[in-house]
Every structure is written in C-alpha cells, then in structure tokens.
Design a protein around this nucleic acid. Structure first.
Lengths: 337, 337
DNA sequence: GTGAAAGCGCTAACAA
DNA sequence: TTGTTAGCGCTTTCAC
C-alpha cells in the first residue's frame, strides 16, 4: 500500500520538530498550546504532502492497537454473519477495527488462532467458542474477552447469549400445546454449550409437561447437510415423530428439504419448529415457526461489555430471552386424537 | 491482552543475545548456523516462559503486516457473507489475517475507511466498492488492490466478478423462452456497476429477442425492503408485467413477500427469476429459479490475484460466467396466448 | 556461531 | 510554545 510521507520527513520540510507535528496530528495541539500559526502550517503541509500517520508505529509506541479480534465458527452462517455485521458497526462507532477469524468449529484451529491473534496485540477479543472445554481460554481470564452465543461456565470470562434453555423450553411447550408428544430434535454441534443448553431446555419442558416421555435427539452439526441426513434417518424410523425441532436455521433448511424430497409435507406429515429465525422463514413452504434470537442485543451488549472490560470495569454475563415467532409449520393435532 | 515476555527479556534470562533468540524464533537458526545446543536452549526457554513475539514490533521493522483489508458493503447480506467466508479461509492458508470493514453502501464511509485502513499498513486490499465513480481509489492504482464483485473500468485496478451482463442476459432469455415479454426488473443499488451491468444484459437480451420492447426497471437497493416496496408498486401498475426479474437474493425475498401479501401467487400470477441464488431458494414456495454466482471462484481468484500483486506480478481482470438454476417460479406461457 | 548497534515511525517525559 | 531524547520490540547488517 502507498506509504506516504512520515512525520519526521514532514517536520523537516516545514522546519518544526516531529513532536510538534505529532501533537497537531493527534489533536493535542490545544493541550500543548501550539500556536495557531504552527497548527495551520502543519495542517496545511500534512494535507499537501498527504501525511498518513503510521498506525503500526503508533501501536508499538502506545501499546494499543484499536483492534478487536472476532472469532466465530462460520462467517457464512447467517446467524454469525448478522452478529458480525452488528458488531462491526458498533465497534466502528468506538473507533475500533475488527480482525476477523473463522474457526470452522475446530478447537485446534481456535487455539492456533488465539495464538496468532495474541501476537497482534489486539485490545480485546469477542469470541463464539467451540467445544465444551475452555482450557485454552484460561490464560485470558484477566484480559478483555467476552464470549458471545457460547461460553464456558467454569471460566470467569463473561458472556452474552440467547437464553438457549428457555428458548428451547418455549418452543417445546409450543409443540406440546399443539398436541404433540412424539417430538424429535435435530441438534447442532453436540459439543457446544448453546446446543447443550437447548437440549436441556427441551428435556425440561418434556419432563414438566409430559412426564417421562422421551425425546429422540439426532444429528450433530449446525449445517444444512446435517439437517438433511438426520431428517432422512428420522423418516426411516419405525416410530416417526409427529414434530421436529431443529436447533438452527441451517438445520431447518436441510430437514425441510429432506421431508420434501421424501414426498412428505409440513405440517401435514410432520410439524416443524426451529431455533434461530431468519427472514426467509416467512417464505418457505410452509412458513416456519421459529425461535428468534436477539442478535442485535447480543452484539450491542457484547461490544459494550468489552469496552467496559478494556476500561477496567467489571461486567457480568447476560442471557437474553428469545421469542417464538408463530407461523404455519406446526399443526394443531389436539382434536385429531 | 496478556503481554508475555519479550525477546530481550528472554535473551537475558538465558544469557544469549536478542539477535539469537530472534533468529531461532523466526526459523532462521539454520540460515545463521546457530548451534543445536543454543537452538534447543532458546526453544525450551521460549516454551517455558510463553514467549509470544510481538507482531506489532515485527510489522514496524519489516514494513509488512500480513494483514489484508476486506471492504464489503454489508456483511449480513448472504452473498457477501459467503464471499467473506471463502476469502477468510484462503487468506488464512497464506498466513494472512483479515481486517474487516463494512461500508454500508456509502461512498463517504468507504473513503473514510480507506484512510483508516491505509494508516494500518495493510499488505493488500480486497474491496467490493460502492458507486459508479472510483476517484478515491485512484491513488491505489499502484498498490495491491483487487476489486471483487464490482469495479471501475476507468481504473487500472484489476477485478474479479460474476459476468453480470451475461448472467442477466441468460435470465432474460430464459423468461423470453418461456413466453414472457412483459418483464419488469427490480434492481439493486442503481449506482453500482454490478447493477448496471445486469441492466445492460437485460436490455440487450430484450433488444436481441423482442426488438424494441421496453423493460420496466424499478427499485433502488439490494435489500429485502426495496424488493417489497418495489413489488408493491408493480402490483398497482396498470399494465402489470407477467414476469419479475429481481437483481439480488434479498430483493427476491422482499418481492415474493409482497406478492404473497397481496394475495397473488408465483408462478400463477407472476413469474419470478432472481439474480444471486441461495440455498433456501429451493425451499420457498415456489422454489425460485435463479442465476447462481460463482462465489467460490470469485473469492479464490481474488485472493490469488492479490497475492500475485503483492509479489509484484501482473494480473488481469476476470469475469466468471454464472449459471441459471432452473426451479419452479417461472411459468411457461407459450401456449396460453 | 554469536553479538552490538542501528533503526522501523511514532509519542511523551523532561527540558528549555 | 516548542524541541530533545529515549524507547516501544523487533530484525538485520556488520563485525568478531
């Protein structure tokens, strides 16, 4: 990239010290009572010669990079893409930039990335971690780090996420209220806290509302493929469920596709409810009833908390209640029995 | 973030010079014929004390940051999210990290961001620019910059994008082949090269295939909202079209929603074809016929080209032909006339 | 084989 | 009101 003139060079050109130029450029002219004439001279010259203060040098000197690391499992997943989008906007407002890393749901990659990113002296870290075991974050407990969407309860690092357990409870209750008792769940990545919390919520709801009924939990992955294959298996089972609960928007797509490919339909043959609502759920056939996650709030709070941590303040974790958006993918079978 | 021990400190601890530690840590032990014993000693100490070489200092010294800027209009748009996802993966393979910036389709923000990012001494830039006028990129013509998806033909900066004109031509031809001649187009952001190229393709196809027939082009924005409002207007027009061509996946969602809300349906009342295919197009009601953009190829080529530029090689621009994915949203009205 | 010293471009304590 | 100087942590030339 074009390396402009340096502070020092500019200072020499106009016959002042680099200190002065530095002070003017960093907006501290007033603080040091630089004369208006000098300020003007510097500014004009900076403009004329296209002075672009070197941030790398600043970073080294100030021990601060105004850069935040963002580690997410998969940028292409609409949920994380939306999260990243809001986070980017909020951080920009704070004058911070994002160093983006995708961990591809791999702890190995995550660990490696953590290392690469630490070398870069970022000011803070926002991460949706992989796995159930967060030992590799242990050394970051004293640093400005906020977990988003997922977390590790044995670490003191704060998190902000959807109240996954409650969301899953609500969705399950919704199904039960509509008369369903044979419920299958196509889960996301098993070794993920958000997934586990959702499963817990489902089990709790079933236990509260239907007694010792069992839930069939299948699949392993927040992907379209997993949704498809898991649903295919469900279709072949001897006692097929009347309702399917998919634990992400991607899984829902896959499951719906599998149902359709098998010649069955929703909600006639299967009812479907999904975690993680997306705009196009309105337009599928049928429109899908889903649990909407408070993405905007998660992102805003995460950034706020991170900024607080950077400033040395205490923050506490946050779980935000999601909402069931009712559409047409769940049949009411109360009166058919 | 945790600042580990520095090279210098470690060197003192084990009684060698920082030079030696530096040489070992950067894998140049062989090159400088450091003795095996010393190498071992350094490595062990580095491990023991958790030495994490400070990349900011390296950057300053080496005048290289191993960081690539990625400027896109909207991370939440699935098209750009997918692009970003592949780009991230490819760049990681090259040992580069991404500084992510969203320009929100604003030239002002873009210009500002360009400045912020230049300060940071990035090694190269990948950008999907906004607008029709690229004056603010003029100064980057000699730098490693590659435009993706969009470009400015009066600049020498290379680009890689879908062959938008051809894609639009194909889609229009598809409609005409199915008997449509009253075609309306809901466009994306008007002041965008990709949009313009698509419009050109449509006009060319119409002119080639239907003579001086006119196309109704409405809307302005690659958003769901624009799709909805533009479609609402189309629904109220005196001579409604028989087919709608939406220029992005987001617009398609909005348009489909508007049609549905009006009580009409696709493809009975309107045929629909869209640019920018997405997985869920398979599951909408009806499944949407669309032009699939070669996202993977765009991303891979963009990264390859950028790496070439960084190494000082010449590269040339690339337009990749897209493909029409046929589904069920376009009615064949040839025999109804 | 190893080390001393200079310097990347900036800021800030101290001096004037 | 401005300048001198030291130093952030690293790499590399040159010397031994």
């Amino acid at each position: 990239m074009p390396v402009g003139i340096t502070l020092k060079e500019l200072a020499e050109k106009i016959g002042v010290s680099r200190t002065t130029v530095s002070r003017v450029m960093s907006g501290n002219a007033n603080k040091y009572r630089i004369s208006t004439a000098t300020v003007e001279k510097v500014k004009r010259a900076a403009e004329q010669y296209g002075l672009v203060p070197n941030k790398v040098a600043q970073n080294l000197r100030l021990q601060r990079t105004d850069t935040i690391g963002l580690l997410i499992p998969d940028v292409a997943n609409p949920f994380f893409a939306n999260l990243a989008s809001v986070i980017e906007r909020e951080l920009r407002d704070q004058g911070k930039m994002i160093l983006l890393c995708s961990t591809n749901e791999s702890t190995a990659l995550e660990t490696e990335t953590l290392d690469m990113i630490a070398r870069r002296q970022i000011d803070g870290l926002l991460v949706a971690p992989v796995g159930l075991e967060g030992g590799h974050f242990k050394s970051l407990e004293e640093s400005p780090v906020v977990f988003i969407d997922r977390y590790f309860s044995d670490l003191t690092i704060p998190h902000v996420s959807t109240n996954n357990e409650w969301g899953a409870y609500l969705a399950t209750k919704y199904l039960v209220d509509k008369g369903h008792s044979e419920i299958a769940c196509i889960q996301g990545l098993i070794s993920t806290v958000s997934n586990q919390d959702r499963i817990t919520g489902i089990r709790k709801a079933i236990s509260d509302l239907l007694g010792d009924q069992k839930v069939d939990v299948v699949g392993d992955g927040f992907t379209i493929q997993n949704g498809y294959y898991a649903m295919e298996k469900l279709l072949q089972s001897k006692n097929p469920p009347t309702a399917i609960f998919t634990l992400s928007n991607q899984i829902a797509i896959g499951a719906l596709e599998a149902i359709r490919d098998s010649g069955k339909s929703v909600p006639q043959d299967f009812s479907l409810i999904s975690f993680d609502e997306q705009p196009y759920f309105k337009l599928t056939s049928p429109p899908i009833t889903a649990v909407r996650q408070p993405i905007e709030q998660i992102a805003q709070n995460a950034v706020r908390m991170l900024m607080d941590l950077i400033q040395g303040n205490e923050v506490s974790s946050l779980k935000i209640d999601p909402q069931v958006i009712e559409r047409e993918s769940v049949a009411d079978i109360n009166n058919q029995k």
